Simulated scan of single mutants.
Amino acid sequence: MTPEDLRAAVAAGIIDEAQAARLRVLAEGRAGTRAVMPAEDEPFEFFRGFSEIFISIGLVILLSGVTAMLSWFGGFALLTLVPLIAAGVAWWWARYFTLKRRMTLPSMVLASAFGGGVAIFFATALSEMAISVRAVGVLTFVLTAAALAGWYRRFRLPFTAALIGISLLLAIYAATTSFEDVVMGDWGWRGMFDLSENPIFASSTLVFGVGAFLAGMWFDTRDPHRLGRHAATAFWCHLLAAPALVNTVAVSLLNSGGGMALMALALLVITVLALVIDRRSFLTAAIAYIALVLAWFAGDDGDYGRWVFILMTLGALITAIGTWWVQLRAFVMKALPEFPGKSRLPPYARPE
């Protein structure tokens, strides 16, 4: 059986992730671990065919139509409930598209519609209460994250982890800053994520990044062979963690006057960490964000030659790491001493 067969069996509910992993280990043990392991593989599935794209477009239009119809026929009381009703419709349809058809992209659309509907309902209902705007923002996103956690428990959709993470991040931001601070603050956009200029807001981003990373590792260590939903959930956690971590670190380092040297050191640490956990997605998000941060700081005064150097360096780095990922990871993992959890990370090449 191929890894794709095992993933299909897990998705169909024939076996669970633990059983799939044991089958994989048994097969690898008989044939030789490295001989049968797809070394270049980091499973990720956004959609399984154009039919899912077609159905997703239809669902977006249909949900928009349902919302418009409810808004047209309903009074003020019903208008308040329209987002919640739309979220309920998304839950109803997910029972078919997610549980029965097991379609990836339509399930993501329905989960997003559910989260958006719940968030709008809570924001509308809480704004009618005698509480501050900050409290409305925090409660809205915390309750939305809780509702999405219920969605994940019911439908086991890995993408839900991204929606939960975004909701929690927005809740943290709502608690640590305000719209006026962002628009009219003296520290500006670059200072928002600087630990020295705005420690509360910047630290909250850093704490979120650490939390998302630890959540990703929790899921990863439960599915080191990347066969089931735990690994797919970890993918979304790492995709959120990388920008959040780099956000504060990159801006703080550049503002401190360390410049490119410290940025290069930070990128090296991130690269080694990505190799250890075997997550190209983590490194991809980090490198993309570092390029964005550099663009912010260069602004319109950036030297053309400097930008050519940055682009060529980043491009060469990504290409080289992607090409020799397996060899680099084997070197790093062999060089590292034994540490707790090392045996629960994805297997790596062990050249004779």
Rank of each mutant, 00 (worst) to 15 (best):
W93C: 01
V246L: 09
V109Q: 07
I120L: 12
A27T: 11
P340C: 00
I15Q: 15
V138T: 03
T124Q: 09
S196N: 11
A234S: 14
A171D: 00
L262F: 01
F208Y: 10
P106M: 06
F213V: 01
S281I: 14
E28G: 10
A335K: 05
D16S: 15
L240F: 08
P43D: 09
A86P: 02
L314W: 03
A146Q: 12
T313A: 13
A130L: 11
T284K: 06
S204I: 02
Q327N: 13
E180I: 11
L126S: 10
G58Y: 05
M1G: 15
A12R: 15
R306E: 12
A320L: 15
L169Y: 03
A161V: 13
V138N: 09
D300G: 13
P347H: 07
L168C: 10
L62K: 00
P337A: 02
F159M: 03
D5W: 15
L336C: 03
K334I: 07
W93M: 05
T124A: 04
Q327S: 14
H230P: 11
E4G: 13
A171H: 03
G191N: 06
N255K: 00
L99N: 01
F50K: 10
D186E: 13
A202K: 00
S203L: 07
W218N: 04
R24Y: 15
R306H: 11
H238Y: 14
V182H: 08
A20Q: 02
L99P: 04
A90G: 00
Y348H: 01
F76G: 10
A174F: 01
F213A: 07
F282E: 05
W307C: 01
L328H: 13
D194L: 03
V207Q: 03
R102Y: 08
L168F: 03
T233A: 15
L169K: 02
A39R: 13
V183G: 00
L163Y: 01
A232P: 05
A250T: 05
G259T: 04
A162V: 07
A261M: 11
D41S: 15
G341S: 01
R156M: 02
C237R: 05
S64F: 12
E338P: 07
A266C: 06
L79V: 14
A202F: 02
F331E: 00
S281Q: 09
I310V: 13
V142K: 12
L169Q: 01
L283I: 01
R101E: 09
L63F: 01
R344V: 04
L268G: 02
Y348P: 04
R279H: 03
V308M: 14
